[in-house]
Every structure is written in structure tokens, then in C-alpha cells.
Design a protein around this nucleic acid. Structure first.
Lengths: 187, 187, 187, 187
DNA sequence: ATATAACCGAGACGGTACGTCACGTCTTGCA
DNA sequence: TGCAAGACGTGACGTACCGTCTCGGTTATAT
């Protein structure tokens, strides 16, 4: 049993939990991460402030719980006929996730917070959604690929850097990046 | 004349400006970006709060002015005998900058803030210190290299992603990354 | 029920309320009305600033709540054997109140603030402590006295004007004022 | 010569002085005494801040210089045929001054400030405009009236108290006050 | 059935940073 | 020397949110 139940008492309200997660999703889009406050979340969710603090310590934790499932789903791409097509389509999904998706906004906000908050750093380290999604694609292309060759980092990194630097996603040539990626590390 | 001075009035105090920049540098190391406050900066600098707000809108702007010159300097690497050595040494400098340098901490903080603050986004877009440092190295290796092939992004990206994800810099194999980088994009 | 309490929430702290009122009383004597600040009151009371603002809008309101009970008490004079003695003793109490009493200092400060603040004007209009105290004395002397003959104003006014003009209270001849008052408006 | 001229240098600008006085008059009506600031006065007058401070210490001083001449003029009433008419007409002028006139607003503001500022108290003590105006009327009615009988205070006081208490001037019966005044202090 | 206990909402509590305003002083260049 | 301009250090303003703490009430299980 994961749920270590207390001896008695009222059980946690699933309704309150959902309301908080939805509220965080909405507010992130409406006001941005910086203006996201525990107070605002509680009020938007129609929930007591203490109830929020009882189950989450920081807004980062709530955002993590609210976004990561969506993130995983959005980064899963359908198989393609060629490696080039597959890599390209993955990079497109990655860019779309980072720049258009609410879950991507949550991810970027968390990554940002992690740069100056060790607690958030540990939190996101528990679940490497980007790396896992890239590895899934790479494993499909080459099931015998070596571990620890930074392949996932080389696949994700260039696009990731482009986006995080704040440059226009439309000017990013994912096809070129895919070609370069496949042409590297060979002989 | 660049300095379009008003007709009258007391001139800006260079001493106050320096004091603020030093205060930001110090405080960033001592308390971190999240705990960096305009109030704290002013007090540490021995400067009025209004004086800080008069010249900078946000702590990000101050940090930008305080860090970017140092950043540029720290990312300039000495020429090496072989391309591989040069690339590797650049990547080492990059990792050192992002993980150990005060200026690098400032850079990461700014990049983080840019993820949810369009003003900061524009600010850092005005001066692409990472991209410029990579381009300098790449130009030295191949003066005739094509523009817009994302070479700088492919060079920086993997290490950048590794660091930003919060993973251990010691476990990053810059030599391997350098080899992969040089083996890609050929034809 | 007079106390229309909200449905939930922590109840107002009577301790905090008292601490604020005492702090205002103390500070008025120590630093004067002009140097009385909401910040100072909160700090002296050991209370959050928001807590002060939650229950009072201005320092005048706090002062009103803190002083008016005392004022009423200090302006009540014991009956005397003759009208002249009674009126004289009332005028002495009035002068003492306006010039020596902490509550009187509060009253003068409020009256002053009312001259350029309609809100304070309305506030003090809700409780005419001076007029009520004078009426009490006048009613005792002549229970059948007509209303609206400005008797209370004629009794209070001269001494009030003298004090408010900043002239030396010791040079005010209350006995003469009492005699004149009793000699007027008769036949 | 009253004006002790300095050894050399630019003479005081009469234009600047007038501009400041007009600015104070205007601003008092527009924003009220509390919101009247040295900064605001200087800006409205189109004058340097230092220039204001050079010639006046406080806003009260400026207001005093700007209002008291007007006050004296407005409180001078034309002779009437009977004492009752004269007294009544004086009281009407007094009420009008205190409640309608810009100079009266200035006077009330100064009197208010004097309640908690000894410097202002001394300032207004140098020129008793109300008392002087009342004495002028009383002297005309009875040139041989005794000094120090508080007659001026008894004349002014009731109306003054009524107005300062913030009660409706329209409900003040000046005729009744005049009758009472003339019926008092006889034998 | 009835305690007991943990949950729920609401909202006041002492703090602290926010960004603005005015204070009174100072430092310019010009008249 | 006076003057307009305007930056300086100081400190109060009123607001927002922090995380904690009562409140009255609500649901569950454990007697």
C-alpha cells in the first residue's frame, strides 16, 4: 500500500486536490510563474490556504504534479519510417512542447526555478521527462546503442538551448539539426 | 555625443552605480537570486532605494549589467593546437562558467527569469554571450564555415542542457561531446 | 445580535486591538501627532502593519477610538452649589482638557485633521464630546432651557477659540467668561 | 531700508516669489493642506526646490504669507446703523471667511497645523487676524470698551467652534448669537 | 451510537518586500 | 549669488503575499 492511511479522521478530498491542480494550470497561463502565488492558487481553487500547504510545500511542487504527466504524453511521438523523419518529428514535438504547451511552460518555469532553488533542482531530478522521451526515440532507432554517450543530450541540447535563449522557434531548422545529429558520433 | 545630458541637474553618481553593481555581485553569491531583493541591494550598497529604481527596473537588469562583462571574459579560451583540444577546452570553460562562476550564476538566473518575463527575454537577447563565445572558437577553427547551420547551438546545447537539468557537471564527458561535435555535420 | 460575524475565519484579536490603542496613546505624548505614523504605531504595538490597516484607515481613526472615552470622562464635572461656580469649574475642566490631557491632545489633533479631511470630519461629527459635556452642565442648571439657542456653543466657544489660537491658557479668565455667559441671553 | 542687501550677487527674484505664493493658493484649493507639498509647490510654480527652501522653511510659512493679507481684507465689514446689525454682519463675514474663502481655508489649515506644531503656533501668534477684525468692529460700537474682557473671544468663539466642529454653517443662527452677545457682559 | 481525529473553508495574525512619494540636501551649468 | 534642474540618502506610505494560527464544521473510522 502506497497510501499510508492514518488511524482515523476525514480522508483527503480528491476534489480539493484536483481543484488546486487545475487552478495552477490556469494561473500559470494567465499570470505567469512569477506572479503565481500560494494565496492566489488557493483562492482560485476555492480551497483553504492551509489545505494547499498541507499537501504541497511550494508552488513548484504543485506545478510539478500538475504538469509532468501531460509533459510525458506530449513528448511521445509516433514511429516514422526513417530515422531522419523520426528524429525530425521528435525535435518538432520538443519545440512545440517547450514553446506552445501549457505543460511545457510549467516545465520551463520549474527548470528556471531550479537554477536558484536546490529543492526544485532535486524535485525535477526525480523525473527526467525530456531525457526519457529522447531515449525512447533513440532506443527505437538503435536498440543496441551504447549508454552514457550523451546521445540524448546531443539530440535535445541544441533545440533546448535555442528555445531557452529566447530566440524565435520558427527560425530553428529542426531538419538540419536532425541531419547533423545522425551524422555525428559515427566513425 | 552619446551622452544626451539634460540641461541642468546633478549628474548621476558613478560611485552609487558601482556600489550597486558590487552589492548585487556579492549578494548573489551570499543569498542567491531568489533572496536577492531591491531593498537588500540598496541597503548593502549604502544607497537610497529610489536611486536603484531610478536606473534599473528589476534585479535582473542590475545583474545583467553586473555580470555580462565578466561572462564574456570567462568564456574566451586560448587557442589550442588541434580542433579537438580547442573544442574540448571551450566546453570545459563553458561548464566552469555555468557551474562555478559568479557571472555564470548571474547568467543562469537571468535565463531563468527570461522564461516568464518578456522584458528579461528581450534584455538577454540583446547580447548573446554564449553564442558569441562559441562562434569565436568555431571561426578560429574554420574561418569559412557557413552561417546559420546551428553549429554554435550544437556545440553549446548538450552541455547547456546537462547543466540546466541540474545534473552533476563532473559526470559530463566534454571530450566525448567534442568528438561527436567534430564528427557531425560533415556530409 | 449586534456582532454580525462572518461564517468562518480566525476571530479578531482583542489583544492586538488593545496594543494598538495603547501604542497610539503613548506615541502621541512621546512624539506628537505629526510624527505619529502607522508604521510606528504597528511597531510599538508589536503588531503587523496590515493588522492596523485592517481595522483602521488612518491614525485619526485610531486616535478617535483611543481618546474619546477618556475625553468624555475628563469633561464631566461634579455639581457645584451655584451656577457661576458650576460654569467656572466646567470651563476650567475644558481648558485643562484641551491643554493638558492626552485625550485632549488627541481631540485637538482630530479637529485639526478634520479641517482638511472630510472623513475625519464625519468621524468626529458622530460624537460631539465637547457639546455633550457642556449640555450636561447646562441641563443641570436649567432643566427647562430651550434647545437650539447655541448655549453650548456660547459656553465653549470663547475658551475654545482662545486655546486653539495658541494663546497662553493661564491668561484666560474663566471666571469672567462664566459671568458673561450667565449675563447673556436673558432679557 | 528694511531690505538688507547682500554684498553682491543676483538679487532675489520677485517673480519666483509671486509664483510660489500663487501656486500655494491654487494647490490648497485643488488638493487640500495635507496633500500640499514643498515639491508640489515648487513644480507648480516652475521654480527650483532649493529656491523655495531658501526663503521659506515650511509650507505653513508660505501659506501664511499667501493668505493673511487676503484674510484681513475679507474680515473687514462696512459700518451698519445699529450695533445688532453690525455684529450680525460681522458674524456673517466671519462664517463666510471660514467656510467659503480660500484665505479662510488657509487660516483653518494653519490653525490645524498649529495644534501639533509649535513653530506654526508661534507663526500665527504673530498676527491675530480674527481677533483684530473683531476688535475693530467692537471699537467702532463702543470706543471706550475695556480691554481684556474677552469680548472679541466671546464674539468670535461660538461661531468659530461651530465651524471648526464641522457642523453645517447654514444651521448657525448668527442673529441669535449677535443678540446674545449684546445682552451679555452688561452689569 | 458515539467518540476521536484528520480533514475542510475562511480569515486574522506577525512579518517583510514591494514600488512610490516627499523629505531636505547636494551638485551641476547658466544668468 | 540666485536660479532651474535633478540626483542623492532617508524613511513612511499602503498593498501583497508569506507561512502560521485559530475558528466552526464535516466526514470518516474505531470503539
Amino acid at each position: 500500500m502506497i497510501e499510508a492511511k492514518g488511524r482515523g479522521g476525514r480522508p483527503r478530498s480528491e476534489q480539493a486536490r484536483q481543484a488546486v491542480l487545475y487552478a495552477v494550470d490556469d494561473l500559470l497561463l494567465e499570470v505567469g510563474y512569477a506572479a503565481l502565488t500560494m494565496k492566489g492558487i488557493a483562492e482560485r481553487a476555492g480551497v483553504g490556504r492551509q489545505t494547499v500547504y498541507r499537501w504541497w510545500s511550494t508552488k513548484a511542487e504543485i506545478l510539478f504534479e500538475a504538469s509532468m504527466d501531460d509533459a510525458e504524453e506530449e513528448l511521445a511521438v509516433a514511429p516514422s519510417r526513417t530515422p531522419l523523419a523520426e528524429i525530425t518529428s521528435y525535435l518538432d514535438a520538443l519545440v512545440r512542447f517547450l514553446t506552445r504547451s501549457p505543460a511545457g511552460a510549467g516545465y520551463r518555469a520549474l527548470l528556471a526555478a531550479a537554477q536558484h532553488d536546490p529543492a526544485v533542482r532535486e524535485l525535477i531530478a526525480t523525473r527526467d521527462v525530456l531525457g526519457a522521451s529522447a531515449s525512447a526515440v533513440l532506443d527505437r532507432i538503435d536498440p543496441d546503442r551504447p549508454a552514457d554517450d550523451h546521445a540524448a543530450d546531443r539530440l535535445i541540447g541544441p533545440a533546448f538551448f535555442w528555445i531557452m535563449s529566447g530566440r524565435d522557434p520558427a527560425r530553428l531548422d529542426t531538419h538540419e539539426l536532425a541531419r547533423s545529429f545522425l551524422g555525428s558520433g559515427k566513425s
